[in-house]
Amino acid sequence: MVYTLTVPDNYGYVVFVALGLTPLLAFAQGNVSGLLRKPAKVPYPNPYASEQQAKENQAAYKFNCAQRSHANLLENMPQTMIMSLFAGLEYPTAAAALGAGWLVFRIIYAYGYIQSQKPHGKGRLNGSGFWLMQAGLWGLCCATALKMI
């Protein structure tokens, strides 16, 4: 059986951001965490350094920040990818732009979390604009759904 799916012009950008660049970011952040594991002296299968290790060893603290940043990405990635793909059916340019903005803010978030000297990982807040991008995608999804009703 043959199925035909018609997508709007510029939908390729949505797919590129959602299914190309987003997994690439997850791969890159996973590698950063992996590279920071050895200096932190956190053996597998432990996902994080203990609180005591992080207090005594800056490398362990940095590893925990990288791990948490990556985990937060993985927690938000599925719905963002799905929202981009769905919203892009009606608003491809806006969905691709919001998705790209989401990636930029995620990079700023990770960099601030890992590299900032601010206590308690507060450097991550510089990239918290990704929440606005997600909210925009959610709004476009709602608008697309309403058009389908």
Rank of each mutant, 00 (worst) to 15 (best):
M1I: 02
T4L: 14
P8L: 00
Y11H: 04
Y13M: 15
V17D: 06
A18D: 11
A18I: 12
G20N: 00
P23S: 04
L25P: 09
S33E: 10
S33F: 02
S33K: 11
G34R: 08
K38M: 15
K38E: 15
P39W: 04
P39T: 09
A40M: 10
A40G: 09
A40F: 07
K41N: 13
K41L: 05
P43G: 05
Y44K: 14
P45L: 06
A49S: 13
E51N: 13
E51T: 08
Q52V: 08
A54Q: 09
Q58R: 14
C65D: 00
S69V: 06
H70F: 09
H70G: 01
L74T: 05
E75L: 11
N76T: 13
N76Q: 13
L85T: 00
A87K: 00
Y91E: 06
A94P: 05
G99A: 09
G99C: 07
G99Y: 08
A100I: 02
W102E: 11
L103Q: 12
F105H: 10
I107K: 02
I107H: 04
A110L: 00
Y113P: 01
Y113A: 12
Q115T: 07
N126I: 05
G127S: 11
S128R: 09
S128P: 02
S128M: 12
L132N: 03
L132T: 10
Q134N: 11
G136Y: 02
W138D: 01
W138G: 15
G139N: 05
C142G: 01
C142Y: 07
C142K: 01
T144N: 06
T144L: 02
T144C: 06
A145V: 11
L146D: 04
K147W: 00
M148E: 03
M148A: 12
